[in-house]
């Protein structure tokens, strides 16, 4: 399909406790680059974040409008740990490619469930080849939830199609008890679905199909 620009932030997390810190507060088991979800005490999504292990630091790439909420969640919990956070959002662009394309030197590319996430210093971005409606159609076809549409703070990860980002065997994190209870009782409440248009409660509307989050 192509490349689309995302409204993303890029936080740089340094310090010897950086990975353990992120691991202890999010749904997935962080052992390197992966995608994870930060949830609040009632297991609703604060943000879905791509964690990129850059060896000397980790980068957190999330949805721009959720940056403030995520920082408010993280900062009070640093306590005395060796964790420093800086914001590289202004100097980098975040893009998503549906294909594995070649990028310039200095541009970071990681494979995620959504496609190839690209973090590019300003001026080195690959050409954008997909518009918003084409991207929406591609997402709907592949049942990929998107921040601001399905991935919102009204939903928990299971409801918005992110159950694969909830690691079942890792230790506690905020919201874990609720998610574990939903899983063990087989009651996730809502689920992500795709239907042919028209869909009255659609969260993403495409040209022929839509996504919705509906009671299951």
């Amino acid at each position: 399909m192509g490349v689309v620009s995302l409204d993303g932030y890029v936080l740089i997390v340094n310090g010897k406790n950086a990975i353990a810190f992120i691991n202890g507060l999010s749904t997935n088991k962080i052992e390197g680059s992966c995608t994870t979800v930060f949830t609040n005490s009632v297991a609703k999504v604060i943000d879905m974040v791509d964690v990129i292990d850059m060896d000397s630091f980790i980068a957190l790439v999330g949805h721009g409008p959720n940056k403030k909420a995520l920082l408010s969640h993280l900062i009070p919990r640093i306590l005395g740990q060796d964790v420093q956070i800086s914001d590289a959002s202004e100097s980098n662009s975040v893009l998503l490619s549906t294909e594995n394309l070649d990028v310039q030197e200095g541009v970071t590319k990681v494979h995620t469930f959504r496609g190839w996430l690209i973090v590019s210093p300003n001026g080195k971005e690959p050409t954008i080849t997909m518009n918003e409606s084409e991207f929406t159609d591609w997402r709907i076809e592949n049942m990929i939830p998107h921040p601001g549409y399905e991935i919102t703070n009204a939903n928990h990860p299971y409801a918005c199609g992110l159950s694969h980002l909830v690691h079942e065997d890792k230790g506690c994190y905020i919201g874990q008890e609720i998610l574990a209870r939903m899983k063990s009782r087989g009651r996730q409440g809502k689920e992500l679905i795709r239907e042919t248009n028209p869909v009255s409660d659609a969260t993403s509307v495409g040209s022929t199909h839509s996504l919705a989050i509906r009671k299951c």
Partner: peptide, 16 residues
């Protein structure tokens, strides 16, 4: 991601 770019990224103010 350009590491030179990242190094110059402004630190997030952390209230201690």
């Amino acid at each position: 991601m350009d590491c030179n770019t990242c190094d110059s990224a402004p630190a997030v103010q952390i209230h201690v």
